[in-house]
């Protein structure tokens, strides 16, 4: 592949570089993109490196946490105080690939790929995260749920980049997943739950479902109690396992995935709400 790599040293230069060729794509850690290019899933001869952009930071802000899109996931998971405020988010980050992968892989890349099997999208949906973006028309802010159009389909404008993700100050949360192999394999199903202060129910989101990770409002209605009863959890799990479309592929059958939802939801609730572990 005849491929060129542009290394802009600022946001404006990166946007200009993306606009300069019709097939230009950003590259962050490259852990998805290099494989997608090799397999022909993405066609581009113009890569624009995000390595020079000032977005590799993780910080507490007045409104909560701001996670920069180009911060390596390893830096995110080891950020002081983040695991105490967002245990489920850090569990999800730590589930991605391996330590060596996470030293390069980024949150922006995970969002940018928008895989139905992503381990980060469910917890971000459960936390109702905002995504901050910058493009030729300037910055904007959008709900992740609105940006996520479908499988590998994030509603970004031409030349637009993900700058970061904004999380609330803190929220009891958990992310439970199941895979064939614990490292370097994506989850068959992931179940994320979160309850930001003031919320009247647990938010529930699923990964490993088609066409993209999603919230399950009908299941959430059964989970208003801070520590839901056995009957409430069973009802929520039943609703969640029938509400979404599960994939059948080489990692698992749809039937197995449906059954996983029940056990993973229980585990997540037990961890986040202090209930008994099944």
């Amino acid at each position: 592949m005849p491929l060129t790599l542009e290394r802009p040293d600022g946001v404006d230069a990166a946007i200009a570089a993306l606009l300069s060729a019709p097939d230009a794509v950003p590259i962050a850690g490259g852990t998805d993109l290099l494989l997608d290019l090799e397999a022909g899933r993405v066609r581009s001869e113009h890569l624009v490196s995000l390595a020079g952009l000032p977005w590799a930071r993780v910080e507490r802000t007045g409104e909560g946490w701001s996670i920069g899109s180009t911060a390596p996931l390893r830096r995110v998971e080891r950020s002081e105080g983040l695991a105490a405020d967002h245990p489920g988010f850090v569990e999800a980050v730590r589930s991605v690939g391996s330590a060596a992968l996470r030293h390069r892989a980024t949150l922006g890349g995970n969002l940018g790929r928008a895989s139905p099997a992503s381990d980060l999208l469910p917890i971000l949906l459960a936390l109702d995260a905002d995504v901050t973006l910058v493009g030729p028309a300037g910055p904007r802010r959008a709900k992740l749920d609105e940006l996520l159009r479908g499988s590998r389909d994030l509603a970004l404008g031409r030349g637009e980049l993900i700058e970061g993700v904004a999380l609330p100050p803190r929220a009891p949360s958990a992310y439970a997943w199941q895979r064939v192999r614990p490292a370097n394999d994506i989850s068959q199903v992931g179940v994320a739950i979160a309850r930001p202060p003031g919320a009247d129910r647990w938010a529930v989101a699923l990964g490993g479902v088609l066409p993209r990770p999603c919230r399950v409002p009908a299941a959430e209605e059964a989970l208003t109690a801070p520590t839901p009863s056995e009957e409430e959890v069973r009802r929520a799990a039943r609703i969640a396992s029938t509400a979404a479309r599960f994939a059948s592929d080489r990692r698992a059958t749809a039937e197995y995935r449906r059954r996983l939802v029940d056990v993973l939801l229980r585990r997540a609730l037990a961890r986040a709400s202090g209930g008994a572990r099944p």
Binding site: R7, I27, G30, L35, L47, A51, R74, A99, H103, R104
Partner: peptide, 18 residues
């Protein structure tokens, strides 16, 4: 190791590294 941290050399472009 890149600056002491483990990285997968098969998934990094040489010219993209700091």
């Amino acid at each position: 190791l890149l600056a002491g941290e483990t990285v997968l050399s098969c998934l990094a472009l040489t010219r993209d590294l700091p």
